[in-house]
Amino acid sequence: MQSAKGKKAVMIIASNNFRDEELLKPKEVLEKNGVSVTVSSSSLKESTGMLGAKVKPDILLTGIRVADYDAIIFVGGSGANEYWDDPTAHKIANDANNAKKIVGAICIAPVTLAKSGLLKNKKATTYSSTVQDIKSGGANYTGADVERDGNIITASGPAAAQKFGETIVKALSQ
């Protein structure tokens, strides 16, 4: 694997009920490969994951400057639906995509990308409960654990978290 050293990623978590391993696994993979990771949320208060992990975000969602990052990653978990209809999240996703940055989303978070128009005619995957939501956004649902279409990387859920992180590293290294 080529190096992703010196690259920067921002991982966006729900203010509550993000999915622990969907943040922690990819974050570990990214950091092991030299990627500097910033955690963002809609609140700077400590967020609790569905399995109890406690994370204090580094920056607010509204403070994300897309130009500062090589990858923008939306983390899943039941709380991730707070960004589905969030204009700020949609703008961040679209700005990152337009700048040819890596845009990632795991579990139910691909719905945010679908609702922002990013998955139209793109191969994508998502958690089983949100397949219809991404199809409604024009995605070509594949059912894969991890799906990459250009600079957009989606993953199905906690079991795919490690592979999701590895796919992002690979994309950042190209």
Rank of each mutant, 00 (worst) to 15 (best):
K115A: 10
R65G: 09
V29C: 06
N151L: 08
N98H: 11
Y83C: 03
V37A: 05
K45A: 14
K25Y: 14
G63F: 00
N121H: 12
V37N: 08
I134R: 02
Q162G: 06
A4G: 04
I72M: 10
S36G: 01
I72L: 14
K120R: 13
T142A: 09
T154N: 13
I108M: 10
V111Q: 00
E46H: 03
D149I: 10
D95L: 12
L172D: 00
V55G: 12
Y69H: 09
A144Q: 14
I106H: 07
Q132D: 15
W84P: 06
I13K: 03
N121M: 10
V39L: 07
G104F: 01
P26V: 03
K27I: 07
T142C: 11
D68P: 07
V37G: 05
A109N: 08
G138Y: 06
D70S: 11
I134W: 05
K101D: 10
D85F: 11
I108R: 04
N16Q: 15
V169S: 00
A160P: 08
V131D: 01
G34K: 02
D20N: 12
P87F: 02
K115R: 15
F74W: 11
T112C: 11
I102F: 02
W84Q: 07
A114W: 13
E31C: 09
K100F: 12
G157Y: 07
V111G: 01
I152R: 02
K8V: 04
K101I: 09
I72T: 06
G63I: 00
A139G: 10
H90P: 04
T126Q: 01
T142Q: 12
D145R: 12
W84D: 14
I13C: 02
I106Y: 02
P57M: 00
V66M: 06
G143N: 07
L113S: 08
T88R: 13
T38W: 07
N16K: 15
L61A: 04
K54D: 06
F164E: 01
G63E: 15
K91W: 08
S128Y: 13
V66E: 08
I106M: 07
T112S: 13
A80N: 03
Y83W: 08
K115Y: 10
V35G: 01
I152E: 03
I64G: 01
L23N: 05
N98A: 15
S128F: 13
A71C: 13
G34R: 01
V66C: 07
L23C: 09
C107N: 11
A144L: 12
L118A: 11
